[in-house]
Simulated assay, not measured.
Amino acid sequence: MLIDSATVAVVTGGSQGIGLGIARALARRGAALALLDIDPAAMEAAAAELSPMTRVATRRVDVRDRAAMAAAADGIGADLGAVNLVVANAGVGLGVFQPLDRELRYSTWDYVVGVNLEGVNNTVQTFLPAMLERGAPGHVVTTASAAGLAVFPERSSGYTYHASKFAVVGLTEALRRGLADLGSPVSASVLIPGLVATQVAANSVRHAPAASVDPGDRERIGEMVAAGTAAAAALGRDPDAVGEQTLAAIEADALYIPTDRLAESAVRDRAAAVIAAMPPASAYDGGLAAAMESRRSGGGGGRPARP
Rank of each mutant, 00 (worst) to 15 (best):
A271Q: 09
V190E: 12
E251P: 02
E173S: 10
A249M: 06
V120R: 12
G158T: 12
P215A: 01
Y111S: 06
A210I: 01
A73Q: 12
S265K: 00
R296I: 00
G236I: 05
G138E: 12
S145Q: 06
P185Q: 12
L33H: 03
M43A: 08
V186D: 14
A41G: 07
G93H: 05
P129R: 12
L20P: 15
R28W: 03
E154W: 12
R59N: 04
R66T: 05
P185E: 11
P279A: 06
V56S: 09
A271D: 01
L179F: 15
V11I: 15
G236D: 04
E223Q: 03
A9N: 09
A146V: 14
G301V: 06
R206H: 09
G135V: 10
P153M: 15
T198R: 10
T58W: 07
G77Q: 09
A271N: 03
E49R: 09
A25V: 04
V120H: 08
G21E: 02
D238I: 10
M131S: 05
F152T: 00
T12Y: 01
D101Y: 13
A67P: 09
S187N: 13
V225I: 11
D39I: 02
A232E: 05
K165W: 02
P129S: 05
E244K: 01
M292W: 14
S5P: 00
G148N: 12
L26M: 08
N203R: 11
R295P: 00
D65K: 08
V83S: 14
G13M: 11
A234P: 02
A150Q: 06
T143K: 04
F152N: 00
R66E: 09
A226N: 01
L117I: 15
L255S: 05
D260R: 02
G119N: 05
D269I: 00
V8I: 07
V92E: 13
D214V: 02
A68R: 11
A25M: 05
A234S: 07
A144R: 15
L100Q: 04
G178M: 12
G194W: 05
H207W: 10
G14R: 10
A233P: 02
A42I: 04
V113G: 07
F152L: 03
G95I: 12
Y284E: 03
M1A: 13
E133K: 14
E244G: 05
D62H: 02
A70P: 00
A232Y: 05
Y256T: 06
V168K: 09
R237N: 03
N89G: 08
E133M: 02
N203A: 14
A67T: 08
N203Y: 11
A283K: 00
V205I: 11
L149G: 00
F166N: 09
D39L: 00
M1Q: 15
A32T: 04
V267E: 01
R220G: 07
A180K: 10
N84K: 03
W109Q: 03
S294P: 06
N122Q: 09
V112Y: 04
E173V: 15
I192Y: 14
T143W: 15
A230F: 01
L26S: 10
G21W: 10
Y159M: 15
D285A: 06
G243P: 12
E49P: 03
Y161R: 11
L20N: 14
A73Y: 05
I250H: 11
D238C: 03
A248P: 08
I3V: 14
R237S: 07
L117F: 14
L288W: 08
L100K: 02
A188Y: 13
A277Q: 13
E173C: 15
R28I: 02
L175N: 14
I250V: 13
